[in-house]
């Protein structure tokens, strides 16, 4: 596995710093659910950055990564739903909790096809929301154009997730070395896009 360079560490540190900043500043005027959902999302980004710096890319071999990686899109999409589609927040929160529980259960009790389908379904819904909702809201004029950046961040998160998922499945889309070189950049650009998009919203 690729060893972590100083540049990788600096990029991850910048990612962690941006995520910490977003946790501290939050988003003005939000209710409790949206605030905590965003806190979990950016908190996961911060902790992921720190743990990658400490443990290197080998940290990605932990079985917990799949669960933690699901927390990020689920909580971020929950925050977006709670903020922009409050009428749906109860139903979506139920989906998020059930989805996360299903991922945990299938990962440990029924690994294989059931686990993969559950993961793809939950990630797919959350990813589409993060990518599509900011896009639709901005184009309709319901949110400032800068909010599109959150959707771009969603696209980047999806790209990173796909690269890692196929790598873990043993059918990498790119050489492993390239994926690990790209990963810190993807994490930084994704976090920067989220933070900038939320600041402009």
């Amino acid at each position: 596995m690729k060893s972590m360079s100083v540049l990788d560490r600096l990029l991850l540190l910048a990612t962690g710093g941006l995520a910490a900043y977003q946790v501290v500043v939050g988003v003005e005027g939000l209710g409790g659910l949206a605030t905590w959902a965003y806190t979990v999302a950016f908190g996961v980004l911060l902790l992921a950055g720190l743990l990658l710096i400490i443990l290197g890319f080998e940290a990605l071999e932990s079985p917990l990564v799949v669960i933690v990686a699901a927390l990020l899109p689920l909580s971020l999409s929950l925050g977006l739903v709670a903020e922009y589609l409050p009428a749906w927040s109860g139903a979506y929160m139920a989906f998020a909790l059930l989805g996360l529980t299903a991922i945990v259960i299938t990962r440990y009790l029924a690994p294989g096809k059931a686990a993969t389908i559950t993961l793809a379904l939950v990630h797919g819904v959350a990813g589409l929301l993060i990518f599509g909702l900011p896009l639709i809201l901005s184009l309709r004029g319901a949110a400032p154009m800068g909010f599109i950046l959150v959707g771009i961040g969603g696209g980047l998160i999806g790209l990173g997730g796909l690269l890692l998922a196929f790598l873990k499945a043993g059918k990498p889309l790119l050489p492993a070395e390239t994926i690990f070189t790209l990963l810190p950049w993807l994490l930084l650009f994704m976090t920067a896009a989220f933070v900038a998009g939320m600041a402009m919203a």
Binding site: V23, V24, G26, T35, F42, G43, L47
Partner: peptide, 17 residues
């Protein structure tokens, strides 16, 4: 402040995990 408290909760959650 509330923002820093949230960050402290996140860092504490990392320690506990």
């Amino acid at each position: 402040t509330w923002g820093y408290l949230r960050l402290l909760v996140v860092l504490s959650a990392g320690l506990l995990t």
